[in-house]
Design a protein around this nucleic acid. Structure first.
Length: 118
DNA sequence: CAGATAGGAATGA
DNA sequence: TCATTCCTATCTG
């Protein structure tokens, strides 16, 4: 296959990010940590790329939550909206957080085991 | 180069 | 368990 994630240029992080988001099945969410792990960057960078990039049409930001199940920071319209969208997608909520069973580690799906060697 | 940020992990109490 | 602190990667000035 083309370029392995281990060989990609760091500047493509954002492109990979969009692709991963589109790969997330409906009714499931992923975390910044998983995305960061899959891309090979830090969760901070993931949020930064999503924040500024803004291709809101192809970027379901609402499917990205924090590692502990919290919705995270930015919510278009308000915190309730993000939760509501996820519920409509089929994600269950427990307390004020996403059900851990509805969270998928995109990195694990890609086959990225553990962290990168550093 | 310095500062700020849509998080994560570790440490201390 | 909660609060505090440090870290990493990308963006803007």
């Amino acid at each position: 296959m083309g370029r392995a994630i281990e060989e990609r240029d760091p500047l493509d992080a954002r492109q990979i990010l969009y692709t991963l988001l589109m790969l997330i099945p409906v009714g499931r969410v992923t975390t910044y940590a998983s995305l960061a792990r899959a891309i090979g960057t830090s969760p901070r960078a993931v949020g930064r790329l999503l924040a500024m990039n803004d291709n809101p049409v192809i970027i379901p930001c609402h499917r990205v939550v924090k590692s502990d199940g919290s919705l995270g920071g930015y919510t278009p319209g308000g915190p309730m909206i993000k939760r509501r969208i996820l519920e409509l997608e089929g994600v269950r909520f427990r307390g004020g957080k996403v059900d851990p069973e509805c969270i998928i580690d995109i990195a694990s799906v890609l086959g990225v085991s553990g962290k990168r060697s550093k």
